Amino acid sequence: MASTPPPTSIAELKTSARLAGAPPVPIEIRQHNSITTARYDMSALEMDIIFALLSRLNKDDKPGTMYRLRVQELEKLTGREWNYHRLGIAVDSLVGRSYHIEDGNSWLKVTMLASAEYLKGQGVIELEVSEKLRPYLINLKNNYTSYKLHSVLSLTSKYAKRVYELASQWKDIGETKTYSLDEFKYMLALKDPTGKEPEQYQQISNLKKFVLDIAVEQINAHTDLTISYELIKEGRSYQKLCFHVAQQKLEQIPLPFELGIEDAKMQVARKNLDELGIREPALVKHILTTSSLLAALFDFTYKHKTGKIKSSKNAGGLFLKINGLVGSKMK
């Protein structure tokens, strides 16, 4: 008896799982952290095409592999009707789009695609990944960001998509690194490092209204993450920001991240404990080496900073009480 051929598209993969009686499996995208923090500018439609492409990559793919995306498939995933004229323009523009990647003491400017073809009348896009970019996208074992295809496609703002990528890189820690506003704007192509192009949203009120608030609203409503942002003043003006991140699905598996466990996760955890006034060495060690308490610490810190837990006088004492550590020493 002939065997059933393997599914060849995202839609067929979902159908196959459903017919087999298995629950739907969220499609995951992986990319190197250098891509997550790269400077690039794309429309929301162009980004959706790239995200769909990334979900199709496989570690066994050979150089020159052509990836076929069906428009109907993308419409089902996004729940939106794709204008075929705009789609053709987006595919044409993608060939010229590039990433500016900072990697140690060097930088790389590279296009995402070696070729792109839109087959009129068939509703099919054929894409080929640039060979220079393949190491940042395929067979990643560490230093990568993982996020859900459905989540990122559900976002309509291109800034929400970028912030979701950044937040996903730090979702296992509970908060992102602190970015200078210049650094953040460079990544989102809101500011030109050379100064040749005019800076967008120079007024902090406009940055909040048109970028940050929209990103938070869409990400919290449509993705697996819940985020908030914190603007930080230096002197009389805002100069930095960071995002607080919580996962809405606690069963998701923590993933490696660029700074390493001790340099990032433990560093943030120690900072959180210090801010809570929990500094007794044995107690700190106990919390940091107990996975359930460490997870509880990140969860408590996020909720406390976002106002979901209110304790103006003794937040550290409340954390200890909630986690059965009452009577342990605090300094």
Results as ranks from 00 to 15, higher is better:
S146C: 09
Y179P: 00
Y144M: 09
K161N: 06
I138Y: 02
Y159D: 08
I125E: 01
L133W: 09
K76E: 15
M66L: 15
D61Q: 11
H85Q: 12
Q72P: 10
E131C: 08
S106W: 08
Y84A: 03
A90G: 02
A160S: 15
I101P: 01
T78S: 15
A167I: 09
L87Q: 05
K76W: 04
N83Y: 09
R80H: 10
G88P: 05
R70I: 04
K141F: 14
R68S: 12
E73Q: 12
R162G: 02
V129Q: 02
H150D: 14
R86V: 00
G174W: 05
K177L: 15
L119M: 08
T176K: 07
D182Q: 13
S157N: 09
T78W: 05
T145G: 09
L133I: 09
S154I: 09
N142M: 14
K141E: 15
Y136E: 08
S106M: 11
A160Y: 04
Q72R: 10
T178A: 14
I89K: 14
W170R: 04
Y186K: 11
R162H: 14
S168I: 07
V95A: 09
Y186N: 13
K148N: 10
A116E: 01
S130Q: 10
G96P: 00
L119P: 00
Q72K: 13
A90H: 04
G64W: 14
E126R: 13
K132P: 00
T176G: 07
K158A: 10
K177I: 13
D92N: 12
L155D: 06
Q72W: 07
E128Q: 14
K171A: 06
L155V: 06
K148W: 12
G88S: 07
W82Y: 07
D103C: 07
L149T: 03
T111I: 00
E73A: 05
V152L: 04
K171Q: 12
K120H: 07
K109H: 06
I101N: 03
E75K: 07
D92I: 03
L119I: 09
S146N: 11
M66Y: 13
W82C: 05
E81A: 11
Y159N: 08
E75W: 04
E81H: 07
K171L: 01
L140N: 02
S115G: 03
L113M: 07
Q169R: 08
V163F: 02
R68E: 15
N105M: 04
I89Y: 11
Y67S: 12
Q169Y: 15
H100Y: 13
E183D: 13
E117G: 03
V110T: 14
I173Y: 00
G79D: 06
G88Q: 11
Y67K: 10
A114P: 00
G79V: 06
D103I: 06
L127E: 01
K171V: 06
L113R: 02
E165H: 13
Y136R: 11
N105S: 08
Y147R: 02
D61V: 08
L127N: 01
G96Y: 02
L69D: 04
P135S: 14
R97I: 07
G64N: 10
Y136W: 13
A114N: 06
K62I: 12
T156N: 14
G121M: 06
L137W: 13
N83L: 06
P63R: 13
L133F: 15
L94P: 01
W107I: 01
H85I: 06
T78C: 09
Y186P: 01
K148P: 00
V71K: 08
H150L: 03
T111L: 00
I138D: 05
T178K: 15
